[in-house]
Amino acid sequence: MGWQPWVSDDDEAGTDGQGLRVEAIRIRLVKQVHPDSISLNKSTDTLDTEDSDVLTANFTPDDTTNKDIFWTSSDPNIVSVDDSGKITAVADGTGTASATITATSIDGQKS
């Protein structure tokens, strides 16, 4: 309904008397495509202590909008993982002392 003042928490915001205005604003709606599944480029890996490797997450469908991943290790004392999927063997993992690396979508819906 005509020109309205800028407000923030019901108080007028911005500057008055400057003669600078937003004449138009363009809003673009983007459909979010959520992953149906996430898979890794490897199902198993064997590393010696202090060796590293990089895991890659693959999304289905390919046009998933947000492909950010939250990486976790079931036992960071055996294998650590960083934000880019780089895994590093921290200690010997023989017998039942192994670790599972999990890639989880940033919204927590798929892993």
Rank of each mutant, 00 (worst) to 15 (best):
M1C: 10
M1L: 12
M1Q: 13
G2Q: 08
G2F: 07
G2W: 02
Q4R: 12
Q4T: 13
W6T: 11
V7F: 01
V7L: 07
S8K: 08
S8N: 11
D9N: 15
D9S: 14
D9Y: 07
D11M: 09
E12W: 01
E12M: 08
E12A: 09
A13W: 06
G14R: 02
T15I: 10
D16M: 03
D16V: 07
D16C: 06
G17L: 00
G17H: 00
G19E: 03
G19P: 02
G19L: 01
G19Y: 00
L20P: 00
V22W: 06
V22C: 11
V22P: 01
E23F: 04
A24L: 09
A24I: 02
A24Q: 13
R26P: 00
I27E: 11
I27C: 06
L29H: 13
V30S: 07
Q32G: 02
V33I: 15
P35I: 06
D36W: 05
D36F: 09
I38V: 12
S39P: 03
S39R: 15
S39M: 08
N41C: 05
K42L: 14
K42F: 10
T44H: 08
T44E: 11
T46S: 14
T46A: 08
L47D: 01
D48V: 05
D48C: 02
D48N: 11
T49W: 00
D51Y: 04
D51A: 15
S52L: 05
S52F: 04
D53F: 11
D53K: 12
D53I: 04
T56N: 11
T56A: 14
T56Y: 08
N58Q: 11
F59P: 04
T60Y: 13
T60A: 15
T60E: 14
D62I: 02
T64H: 08
T65M: 07
T65Q: 06
K67C: 01
K67D: 05
D68Y: 09
I69C: 05
F70A: 10
F70D: 12
W71P: 05
T72N: 13
T72S: 12
S73H: 10
S74K: 04
S74N: 09
D75T: 01
D75P: 02
P76D: 15
P76F: 01
N77P: 00
N77C: 00
S80K: 12
S80C: 04
S80A: 14
V81I: 09
V81C: 07
D82F: 13
D82R: 12
D82G: 11
D83H: 10
D83F: 08
D83Y: 04
S84L: 10
S84K: 10
G85Q: 06
G85C: 09
I87F: 04
T88F: 03
V90H: 02
V90F: 00
A91E: 15
D92G: 07
G93F: 01
G93E: 04
G93Y: 00
T94K: 09
G95R: 01
G95N: 02
T96A: 12
A97P: 00
S98Q: 14
I101A: 05
T102C: 08
A103Y: 06
T104E: 14
S105K: 03
I106F: 14
G108T: 10
G108N: 13
K110F: 08
